[in-house]
Design a protein around this nucleic acid. Structure first.
Lengths: 312, 312
DNA sequence: CACATCCATGTAGCTAAGCTTCACACTTAT
DNA sequence: ATAAGTGTGAAGCTTAGCTACATGGATGTG
């Protein structure tokens, strides 16, 4: 019933391999194996089973790992208590983001965080196609993730989810496009267009499918890019139109690219912070998340009041 | 942030002295002092303060101790999880009771518990006058306690309270008493009587005061005893009347002592199991409490159906 | 006022838990 | 078949945390 051992079991439940757990906890695989063995002996029943050259957890093992999370949460909360007593959220916080959210939120957020002494935030970006968002919570304190409405991939995993904002997805058009003077756009207007899409597996594809269904036709996807800057360049060159997140759009080249809201299709993405519940309790982590929420609200307010996309 | 150390701090919060904590945890005072020192250094601010030759906790220390309880609860719950997987509540459970509840509940309960292999229950009794019920939870897993309605002494301490039963307090009369044929009794009927009371400090005294207020007079308390058997003997000898818990009464001497319900006065006591929240999570403890609840319900049902005190 | 007592806390040393290193068995890919 | 991945075991070392003993204040008591 030692906490360290329970923690190891929990890591094993997430990382599926003793070698990975050892790497993550800066230990030898042998040490991890020995500790899990002790835990198993204490428990009195097998917690793991060999499967191929790896191993998997038994039902008992999974159940114990689940309650190990509660222990970790309580422990992290205790830690937060004395951080609050000292009035400073200290320590390092690691964060991954997908590119567009990072561009939109992180510069402003980190400027505010710089004012907090002793709080260090390490940011990285990862391409959302390659990455399984929930899995990243094992290695990062905060994972900025997005999902389209209706699909909620991070429900049953026991992760803490903090919504930051919901961002409309508009249609990006070159300034000289035939639809550039319209206030908004419906599926039928654009179903025949040439599109600059996202690679397979990106959730944006689902919206394109919706457009096809609602509009009654097939959208021609000429190119598939992950980088939004690249997509915008293609649109401005007149090589196609694309779905563009409204707030993320820098508005860099006024006159060469305009955004039109899409009606009749549920085109929104929800941007959230994803965390392991114990890490979410850390005062340093909570502080960063609060700043992110405020920054997201600021961005959203700025766009809705000053610059509706129909009349830039 | 080690759990062992947090546990020590929590013990210190309850026992107010390092020596006592050392005794309770089977350690040397020096060892306890060293560990608390480490914890203090980790926390970065003082957790204790010297006060006379002892010491007291600072605000930070108390706050940390509180959250240490949550950690202990989570840990105990994890422990219960694998106990449930093994389908047997094992281990030792210690229990204190006040005499009357012990007589009423424990024999039946322990007979049932004997059927559970590996579950050992150690019982003791303590006189309720001498004992501060909440304080006993530091040394016993389960504390059987009682309180009169309205007064709830175990509210803010963060203890787990499981109600077992509410027991009416009747008036015990000798069989040849002038009121022995009445179906029930009001305050005015008995305010002038000679009473066999409880020692000062017992909550029963409050009910006697209520009777005096409602009845308009003064009750003459001839003797004060704590032992219920003794009180009953005095009543049967015609030396006075007394408040007798209805279900506790053995009914030993039919015809020599009768119980009459008291109307117009809120004469009930609530019998509860009092536990430290982490101990309450242990499967073995929960099992014992469940048996106690069932036994209490059985006793109550038996009395209300077969033997209303007005017609024995 | 000295004395005994009770408390917390330091110092020295020992024990044992938990780590690393190395070696081995086993399973899958090339 | 060889190589590279997996988890596990035995031997040894490091160190966290304990005991034993000694010390310094604070509180009663002759």
């Amino acid at each position: 019933m030692d906490v360290q051992r329970l923690e190891l079991l929990r890591e094993l439940a997430e990382r599926r391999s003793i070698t990975e757990v050892a790497r993550a906890t800066h230990r030898t695989p042998s040490a991890v194996s020995q500790q899990l063995k002790v835990l198993e002996r204490e428990a009195g029943l097998p917690l793991t089973e060999r499967s191929g050259r790896g191993l998997i957890l038994t039902d008992a093992g999974r159940a114990l790992a689940r309650s190990a999370t509660d222990v970790a949460v309580a422990l992290a909360r205790a830690n937060a208590v004395w951080d609050e007593f000292r009035h400073h959220a200290t320590g390092e916080v690691s964060l991954v983001t997908f590119p567009t959210a990072g561009e939109m939120l992180l510069p402003g957020a980190l400027q505010q965080i710089a004012a907090v002494p002793g709080l260090i935030v390490n940011c990285t970006d990862k391409d959302p196609e390659l990455s399984d968002f929930p899995a990243l919570t094992a290695d990062f304190d905060i994972v900025l993730a997005y999902s389209l409405r209706g699909q909620l991939p991070w429900g049953g995993r026991g992760l803490t989810v903090v919504p930051l904002m919901t961002e409309p997805l508009d249609v990006g058009l070159p300034a000289d496009h035939r639809l550039a003077s319209r206030a908004w756009i419906g599926p039928a207007d654009v179903v025949g267009e040439t599109w600059i899409g996202a690679p397979d597996g990106y959730p944006f594809e689902r919206i394109l499918h919706q457009i096809e269904q609602q509009g009654g036709g097939r959208a021609l996807v000429a190119q598939r890019f992950a980088d939004m800057r690249l997509i915008e360049a293609f649109v401005m060159a007149g090589l196609g139109i694309a779905l563009v997140p409204r707030y993320t759009w820098g508005g860099d080249q006024p006159g060469r690219l305009t955004l039109k809201p899409l009606r009749g299709v549920d085109a929104e993405r929800q941007i959230v912070a994803l965390m392991r519940p114990d890490r979410a309790e850390r005062l340093a982590v909570r502080t960063v998340v609060d700043v992110l929420r405020a920054e997201a609200a600021r961005v959203q307010a700025e766009h809705t009041s000053t610059a509706p996309p129909s009349s830039p």
